[in-house]
Design a binder for these strands. Structure first.
Lengths: 109, 109
DNA sequence: TGTTTTCCCATCGTCTCTCGATGGGAGTAT
DNA sequence: ATACTCCCATCGAGAGACGATGGGAAAACA
């Protein structure tokens, strides 16, 4: 692994979670993740936008153009019903994985 | 991500941890991970052996041929001093990431 | 004895993901 | 005017995980 700002395989889940409460634009999602994670999760634009394309393709989010709070053209993403299901499912699977990994990492050594 | 048996980016750490207490052969590492994780971590051979090659190349493990408990030819892997450092470092970084992700996932939604 | 099962090694090709670099455009502040 | 911030997006490289594949040798079974 080279330099990694986020754990591979978790980005879609994180984005969906960011949108669970309210719609956000791409830039806003990145800001939100950085803030809530206390500067640990710094998702770059070249990871973010491809991820959003994936989510759109899968029907987990939908997008609409609008204006940002700063009066700029922005694309707002909203989570869909299918997206919420996906979020729940990915969440469960993630917890399962983390639990397993922690059993390994916590084993007497 | 298609079907994923392990969290991407965590395999090297898991292998190093498997070897922290005692040397094991490849097959044994896979068995160990499956057992300790209670059948969650099922690392296939096509993930495992390339990972072991990586670890060898990086000097984090060393290998020697021997005989398994079942009287079969087996390649035993031992963690090196550098490997232990790497394990500690990856461990810390992993905890940092998980903490961050959980702050996001736990945020009021 | 012959066949199957279990144990153990390893690679190749494909797919997916992340990221640095790049290239816009349009408000706002200097 | 110029720079800075905000906001969009793609491309190419590099890496990791995995299904498929192909051994080989001991043990169990028929």
């Amino acid at each position: 692994m080279g330099k990694q700002e986020i754990l591979p395989g978790t980005l879609d889940m994180l984005i969906l979670k960011s949108l669970a409460r309210e719609k956000r634009h791409g830039y806003g999602i990145a800001e939100y993740l950085k803030a809530v994670s206390e500067d640990v999760l710094e998702v770059g634009e070249s990871s973010l936008y491809p991820a959003l394309q994936r989510l759109l393709l899968n029907g987990w989010v939908k997008a609409e153009w609008g204006a940002s709070e700063n009066n700029r053209r922005a694309r707002y993403y909203t989570i869909t019903a299918a997206g919420r299901k996906q979020l729940a499912s990915e969440s469960r699977e993630f917890d399962r994985m983390i639990g397993a990994i922690q059993r390994v990492m916590g084993a007497a050594s």
